[in-house]
Simulated assay, not measured.
Amino acid sequence: MKKYALCLDLKDDPQLIAEYESYHKAVWPEIIDSIKGAGISNMEIYRLGNRLFMIMEVNETFSFEAKAKSDAENPKVQEWELLMWKYQQALPMAKEGEKWLLMDKIFGLD
């Protein structure tokens, strides 16, 4: 099992943040299927203010490239991503088109 941490910002608007959280209390089943089908065994998202932090635990079949390709070919995932972009904003260091950015692990208590 491998673990990844990613981050992204939300637009700093309390109403939009509340709507975003509401969507995540009832994520569309097709999105859940897409996540699990990609080899992601667990996913958690945390929020502090308008900053989001995601932890993904993945199995040996997971790859970011395969997930991106699968998402691009899935109309329901594209619909979800377009909807979520209403609430999200890229981090200042993001390149064009980047949303969730992979974080570097700098400490581990093993």
Rank of each mutant, 00 (worst) to 15 (best):
I40N: 06
I32D: 09
R47D: 12
P75Q: 08
M54R: 00
I32N: 11
E60D: 15
P92I: 15
L48R: 10
H24M: 09
W28P: 00
I40P: 01
F107Q: 03
K86T: 13
K69M: 09
D110W: 06
K11C: 10
I106L: 03
M54I: 04
I55M: 01
E44N: 13
S22A: 14
E98L: 11
Q78S: 08
W80P: 02
L82P: 08
A38R: 02
I45C: 07
K99P: 01
A38V: 08
D9C: 14
N50Q: 08
K67V: 02
N74H: 10
E44K: 11
G97C: 04
V27H: 02
E30M: 09
L52Q: 00
E79K: 15
A26R: 10
Q78H: 05
Q89M: 15
K99W: 00
Y87Q: 02
E21Q: 13
S70H: 05
Q88Y: 03
I35A: 05
W85G: 10
D104G: 06
L101E: 01
P29Y: 00
Y46I: 06
L102C: 10
Y87W: 05
K11N: 08
G39A: 07
S70Y: 02
C7M: 15
M1P: 04
S22P: 03
W85I: 09
K69T: 13
D9H: 12
A26H: 10
E21C: 14
Q88S: 14
